[in-house]
């Protein structure tokens, strides 16, 4: 947050991006870059407006984002509660943490073929994949946040005579909020990526499939337009999530500085 404030408007940065785009454009027209399927930025802009006017873009964007966000929401519920339980109950942690770590270490993309086998070429499959991928960072960060509670704060709980439940709601959960937010942010970006993968490999719909299709149809300008849309929507999702978090958990987020 502080970093953002300090940066305000980075004109130099914007100018550099503009210059890079111009250079790209010029290099293709002059013939310095001669990949057959590398379009100049102006073509990409045309491709973008084309997709926008046919409504394809909006439709695909909605499909992908709704799948990713539903998966992420499920993951948030599962991950935060499981992480909190693991953080609160030592025996539970002792008898399951190694399993969690073992499962987490399996490469997520390798699960996509299994999800395709189990759920077929459906949106359900996309949601399951997104959820599975997003659960791990959310769970582990929640757990770490619960665990990382300052001993001083724990003592405050004892001094004030808070019961176990009260200590959880008033101390542990708020103190873990920044860490949970980190997990939620990571989870969100991962769920978007895995939704895209699921669409590329499995369900023929959404941005992921559109990308592959544009590639097969030899329409690089549309493909690049999609890539830009994907990048921008990731940034937008993240910004929205952070704005919500700052509004809802003002105190906790501010106390944590730029942790989340």
């Amino acid at each position: 947050m502080r970093e953002l404030m300090a940066r305000r408007v980075n004109l130099l940065g914007a100018a550099t991006i503009a210059a890079a785009l111009l250079l790209w454009e010029a290099a293709i027209h002059v013939g310095l870059l001669t990949f057959t399927y590398l379009p100049p930025p102006s073509d990409i802009a045309n491709g973008f407006s084309e997709l926008l006017s046919t409504g394809e873009l909006q439709e695909n964007l909605w499909h992908t984002l709704s799948a990713a966000v539903s998966g992420w929401l499920m993951a948030a519920v599962i991950g935060v509660s499981a992480g909190a339980l693991l953080g609160l109950f030592r025996p539970l942690w002792r008898y399951s943490m190694a399993s969690v770590e073992a499962l987490r270490a399996l490469p997520v993309v390798a699960f996509v073929p299994i999800a395709v086998l189990l759920y077929g070429f459906t949106k359900e499959m996309e949601i399951v994949v997104a959820c599975y991928a997003a659960v791990w960072p959310i769970l582990l960060n929640t757990f770490a946040g619960m665990r990382g509670l300052d001993t001083r704060l724990r003592e405050v709980g004892h001094v004030l005579g808070l019961g176990r439940a009260a200590a959880f709601w008033k101390l542990q959960l708020p103190a873990a909020t920044p860490a949970i937010m980190v997990g939620l942010r990571l989870g969100l970006s991962i769920s978007v990526v895995l939704t895209l993968v699921a669409e590329m490999v499995g369900n023929p719909a959404g941005l992921g499939f559109a990308l592959v299709q544009a590639g097969q149809a030899l329409q690089p300008e549309q493909m690049f337009a999609y890539v830009v849309v994907i990048g921008v929507s990731g940034i937008v999702l993240n910004t929205v999530l952070m704005a919500i978090a700052r509004g809802v958990f003002r105190g906790q987020m501010a106390a944590a500085g730029d942790a989340a």
Binding site: N10, G13, G208, G215, G231
Partner: peptide
């Protein structure tokens, strides 16, 4: 300062979305 925003964009760009792009170009 000059490269910061550009790097930031490339960082958040999901690698997965580049697979078809690279396949087509290379």
């Amino acid at each position: 300062r000059a490269l910061g925003p550009g790097l930031e964009f490339l960082r958040v760009l999901p690698a997965a979305s580049l697979v078809p792009v690279a396949a087509l170009i290379l």
